[in-house]
Design a protein around this nucleic acid. Structure first.
Length: 541
RNA sequence: GCGGGUGUCGUAUAACGGCUAAUAUGCCUGCCUUCCAAGCAGGCGAUGAGAGUUCGAUUCUCUCCACCCGCACCA
């Protein structure tokens, strides 16, 4: 597996030193998986985001933008399947401590299901026994209290038993052995009920026992000594409003896509675009990753740029190919070398069950080759779910009167942070100028945080400074991201600008005062041209 | 989450159970400098957090936090 020759630590160091990216909450010792953007980082990020938006939304006739709320109705995440699929049952190995997803340990489903049935039968027998014993106690006219009334409410006990217990529960209990036994039995029944419910989602003691008995071993250390499997939810949970109860539960969105699907109908109602059309969105998403890693590559708070492209199911292959081409072009303009980008067809077994085709675009990152973005054909899975759960019709009615249909979607999904790492990795370059090493960022000009730096050749010559200020102000007005730099000597300034990827440096010297020409220096070649000051705008792209 | 490693000025490194914690670079002020990190003078700036051992801890021990590597996990 290939990876970049650029070292992540060099990029991290440069990002910190030059004000691109800092550790989140750094003064307090940091917070795992969070990163803050400094002045140059936010500029780079904005440039990437804006370029994406322009390319895929603004410049196209078939695209619409939205910006949905991060907090959404909890039904969104039930309908999308995130409440289930983002709740992974994990089990920890008692020998080596490694954690594994229970559903990936190779459990035989048939045997497991039989086990659960057997357990359920055992439970039924206990309940029968319990009911029977309560009757006996009544006949002996014994009194008892504090039996678990939730068993009654859940309909586990039959009506007769309920009546019997109700009748006695308000009376003072007699302290008898049979009473204690009954109480124990009721607790046990409740426990078993709970265990059974948990086992169905692959957690709890039943699953633990099952793993031991069927001799399922730890993939890491091959031992068969497990702790009790429990759930790990990747979604950040919170409560909306002052009362923290089940109804107020919400989640920070783990992906932005749902904000698009939930607005699909709104956009159609407002604009009634012809199919195919797409909705694009850029925004933050949150995932409580088990282990954030590799600088900003995998963090707990990240930004996505996503499109849901709504199509007629008959045309999906053609549309899919169109997106592959569009993405290739986009990546090229970000300055990513073609031989560092790899398109990986995701096999059926590995892709989401609802996807008929997925391509991962991978990149040779400093840590390893890893996923940069994904392109997935999601069929009508999402709109279908919304239709089912909300009861609202999601069909699209073609203007030509042909058969209505629920549109299928093609989803290109970009991670902003991954783009940034990829762009920095591609841009990070070391070479030599006059025998001296230099480090510079070979950023495409349209992404550079500073587009052009303006310097007076000497800063103790007022006439040069005045002229340089004049040129600086003119360019600042035009481009915005222009820097005035009079630090140290001219060579130093060039190197500083090289390191932050400024493509052009303009120097005002004594000739400028005479014929109004300046020198413009190219970052990559370090070559200079002398041009008329009024032609600067036409020269820098 | 496990195992291993690391944590000292912004960055990269050094040192030490005790004296003012060093060097380079960067940064700030001033001087100088006619095109690729020149020079001079002055200055700012650090032992991740907490506890313990000790007369004294940046150094030893423990806990926590963060990052890096491997494993595992990951639309």
């Amino acid at each position: 597996m290939s990876k970049s020759k650029v070292k992540m630590e060099d990029i991290v160091s440069l990002c910190k030193r030059r004000g691109f990216i800092y550790q989140g909450s750094e003064v307090y010792g940091g917070l795992s998986g969070t990163w803050d953007y400094g002045p140059l980082g936010v500029a780079l990020k904005r440039n990437i985001i804006n370029f994406w938006w322009k390319t895929f939304v603004e410049d196209r006739d078939d695209m619409y933008g939205v910006d949905a709320a991060i907090l959404m109705n909890q039904k969104v995440w039930q309908a999308s399947g995130h409440v289930d699929t983002f709740t992974d049952p994990l089990v920890e190995c008692n020998e080596c401590g490694a954690k594994h997803r229970v559903d990936q340990l190779g459990i035989d489903e048939e045997i497991f299901s039989k086990t659960l049935n057997a357990y359920n039968n055992k439970l039924k027998i206990l309940i029968k026994d319990f009911t029977h014993k309560i009757r006996e106690e009544k006949e002996k006219n014994r009194k008892f209290l504090n039996l678990d009334t939730s068993l009654l409410e859940q309909g586990i006990l039959d009506k007769n038993a309920i009546n019997i217990i109700k009748e006695f529960s308000e009376n003072i209990p007699e302290d008898t052995a049979s009473y204690i036994n009954l109480e124990r039995l009721s607790i046990r029944i409740r426990e078993m009920r709970l265990e059974l419910i948990k086992a169905k989602s692959l957690e709890g003691p039943i699953v633990k026992e099952f793993l031991q008995l069927t001799n399922i071993t730890c993939p890491t250390c091959k031992s068969n000594n497990w702790l009790t499997p429990r759930k790990f939810n990747m979604m950040f949970k919170t409560n909306v409003g002052p009362v923290a109860d089940e109804n107020s539960v919400s989640y920070l969105r783990p992906e932005t896509a749902q904000g698009i699907f939930t607005n699909y109908k709104n956009v159609v109602d407002s604009f009634y675009p012809d199919v195919p059309f797409g909705i694009g969105q850029i925004g933050k998403a949150f995932r409580n990753e088990i282990s954030p890693r590799d600088f900003v590559f995998r963090s707990r708070e990240f930004e996505q740029m996503e499109i849901e492209y709504f199509i007629h199911p008959d045309s999906w292959e053609k549309m899919f190919d169109g997106w592959v081409k569009g993405i290739r072009m986009f990546l090229k303009e970000l300055g990513l070398p073609e031989d560092s980008v790899h398109e990986l067809e995701v096999e059926e077994a590995d892709r989401a069950h609802y996807s008929k085709r997925t391509i991962d675009f991978e990149f040779d990152f400093p840590h390893k080759r890893d996923e940069l973005l994904g392109l997935a054909y999601r069929t009508d899975f999402d709109l279908g779910n919304i239709q089912r759960v909300s009861g609202k019709n999601m069909e699209y009615r073609p203007k030509d009167g042909s058969e209505p249909f629920v549109p299928h979607v093609i989803e290109p999904s970009f991670g902003v942070e991954r783009m940034i790492v990829a762009v920095l990795t591609s841009a990070y370059t070391e070479d030599e100028i006059n025998g001296e090493k230099r480090t510079y960022l070979k950023l495409p000009a349209h992404l550079a945080p500073v587009k052009v730096a303006v310097s007076p050749l000497l800063k103790n010559k007022p006439e040069l400074v005045a002229k340089a200020q004049e040129v600086y102000k003119m360019l600042k007005k035009e481009y915005g991201n222009v820097m005035y730099d009079d630090n140290g000597n001219i060579g130093k300034r060039y190197r500083r600008q090289d390191e932050i990827g400024t493509p052009y440096c303009i120097t005002i010297d004594f000739d400028t005062l005479e014929d109004n020409t300046v020198t413009i220096r190219d970052r990559d070649t370090a070559e200079q041209k002398r041009i008329s000051a009024i032609k600067i705008k036409g020269t820098i792209s």
